[in-house]
Design a protein around this nucleic acid. Structure first.
Lengths: 155, 155
DNA sequence: CGATAGAAGATGATGCATCATGTATCTGCC
DNA sequence: GGCAGATACATGATGCATCATCTTCTATCG
């Protein structure tokens, strides 16, 4: 490696602002969810995906792909959610190795109760202060970076 | 609360893309740093701030404000970094409650070794695929959201 | 068939983040 | 001087994220 190419000033400023923003924003969202509903952002994501699924159940590997999580993380997380009664695991008849994760009544109530406050927080901390052009720019930027990350994984 | 104002389609798309991007990007950066240098992103941030400080040392509360971390998180993190020999704690003569955290030679070597690879990864996964307008847009967006978060904390 | 590679998932260990709480010190005010 | 807060920092408990590894089952190739 030769002399490294450092970031220029604009890049530095942008990068630091981004890191700071993302850290504080996710902390704020987590805190709101946690105190208002006893859920973490991660719980919320799992529940959203299960809610969207037919019959409120999915194979763990589908959930994993949908969430973009590591397999082990998902497994541990489901165990904790199961212990709290938010989801339950069922056997999968088709595939002896596999399983289903399905929403319990408790889980469904939890997300129904949590969603309005969470969405309101996201709006108030984020979308309410951005104009549509900024939102679109963010979406495009995110999509580009995701494509780059996919490419990097393949390398 | 009346009927909640949900996100519209554009906002949903942008929000999901952002969450996904930020999760995967920070995972990728962490992994690179960890495998290449045995440091986490958090370690890296601490070391950067100490490196920038005169004599390579700071009061923990200064570090805390600079990093925007919770006090307890910083304290625990410093304990772990101390155990690994990256930093050391010193007494503060001026203030009996207080302390200094200072970079050790090991810590300085660690960040010197880690920095080029980390910066290169940030460039290659992020800045290399964005144009200056996007970078500026991101900085502005982040700054606005940070201001909003500050305001929310004061409420 | 049987052997073997690979997929689906669980688990134990470890470091990290947060909450609640504790302790020592300092500062301002009477 | 002395006491009431407030400040600086540490610590124990608990849930979370990651790594390495294990088990069980499926599929495929000979």
């Amino acid at each position: 490696m030769t002399t490294p190419r450092w970031l220029d000033d604009d890049q530095q400023r942008a990068w630091r602002a981004y890191l700071r923003m993302q850290g504080r924003l996710s902390a704020a969202l987590n805190r709101q969810l946690q105190t208002a509903s006893g859920l973490s952002l991660a719980d919320y994501d799992v529940l959203v995906h299960l809610t969207d699924a037919p019959e409120g159940r999915l194979r763990p590997y589908e959930l994993q792909r949908a969430l973009d999580w590591e397999q082990s993380r998902l497994s541990h997380h489901l165990s904790r959610m199961q212990r709290r009664g938010l989801v339950e695991r069922q056997e999968c008849a088709d595939d002896g190795r596999g399983a289903f994760v399905s929403l319990t009544a408790t889980g469904r109530e939890a997300i129904t109760a949590a969603a309005p406050g969470h969405v309101e927080t996201v709006r108030s901390l984020f979308f309410d202060i951005l104009d549509p052009g900024q939102v679109d720019a963010l979406r495009r930027l995110s999509t580009q970076v995701l494509a780059r990350l996919d490419a990097a994984d393949g390398e």
